[in-house]
Amino acid sequence: MQAALPSLSPREAIADALYRAVLALDTADLALLNSSLTPDVLFDMDGHTTEGLDAFQSQLYDKISKLDTTHFVNNLRINFVEGASSATMTASVLSQHYRPNTGKVPGATYFMGGSLYFIDVVKDDTEGLWKIKSWRMKVTWTTGDPDVMA
């Protein structure tokens, strides 16, 4: 998938960093993931941290991208000053996960969660893209079988 979308406003381009990241997880698109995160990205899920793009890929992407999964991003709020090279955003996210090739199977075991995301982004002038530098995820609820994620 195309990483850079030239018609986006600055606010839309900031939001697109998150949209690229979750779409990369949902479509198993490593290039799209790499376009959305800084090399030193810090990911924190309820106090469990992963630091660096390589660690994010091996500990999160490699597992989630194999699942039948969708992430829905809502209530996105962006704090950005025109001309700045950094911004923050928050979002409410609903994520559904099924074991590989079972997402369309009636009654299949699933794991679903609702989360709040707190994200710091920076502008990468080399690629002209906004990228996630810090991603804190607070899981607020879950349902289903967490073993789906194993």
Rank of each mutant, 00 (worst) to 15 (best):
residue 117 Y to R: 04
residue 44 D to R: 05
residue 146 P to K: 13
residue 90 T to V: 01
residue 67 L to G: 02
residue 148 V to E: 04
residue 150 A to V: 10
residue 34 N to R: 14
residue 26 D to I: 03
residue 120 D to W: 07
residue 108 A to K: 07
residue 59 Q to P: 04
residue 27 T to Y: 00
residue 121 V to D: 00
residue 74 N to Y: 11
residue 148 V to H: 03
residue 54 D to Y: 03
residue 66 K to G: 12
residue 46 D to H: 09
residue 40 D to A: 12
residue 105 V to T: 15
residue 64 I to N: 04
residue 26 D to W: 06
residue 106 P to Q: 01
residue 19 Y to F: 13
residue 78 I to C: 07
residue 35 S to F: 01
residue 40 D to W: 09
residue 21 A to P: 00
residue 39 P to S: 12
residue 78 I to L: 07
residue 66 K to Q: 15
residue 60 L to R: 08
residue 106 P to R: 01
residue 111 F to N: 02
residue 102 T to V: 07
residue 83 G to R: 11
residue 8 L to V: 08
residue 39 P to N: 12
residue 6 P to M: 00
residue 59 Q to Y: 03
residue 146 P to T: 08
residue 113 G to D: 06
residue 33 L to A: 09
residue 3 A to E: 05
residue 146 P to G: 00
residue 65 S to A: 15
residue 90 T to Y: 00
residue 38 T to Q: 10
residue 115 S to I: 00
residue 145 D to A: 04
residue 20 R to L: 06
residue 1 M to G: 15
residue 129 L to G: 04
residue 45 M to G: 09
residue 44 D to W: 02
residue 29 D to T: 06
residue 102 T to E: 13
residue 64 I to L: 15
residue 16 D to Y: 12
residue 73 V to I: 14
residue 44 D to V: 00
residue 132 I to Y: 01
residue 54 D to M: 04
residue 106 P to N: 03
residue 141 W to H: 15
residue 10 P to M: 03
residue 77 R to G: 08
residue 134 S to H: 13
residue 103 G to Y: 03
residue 147 D to K: 14
residue 53 L to K: 12
residue 108 A to N: 08
residue 57 Q to T: 15
residue 6 P to N: 09
residue 109 T to D: 14
residue 49 T to H: 07
residue 71 H to E: 03
residue 21 A to G: 03
residue 44 D to F: 02
residue 41 V to N: 03
residue 77 R to T: 12
residue 124 D to I: 04
residue 45 M to W: 03
residue 94 L to T: 09
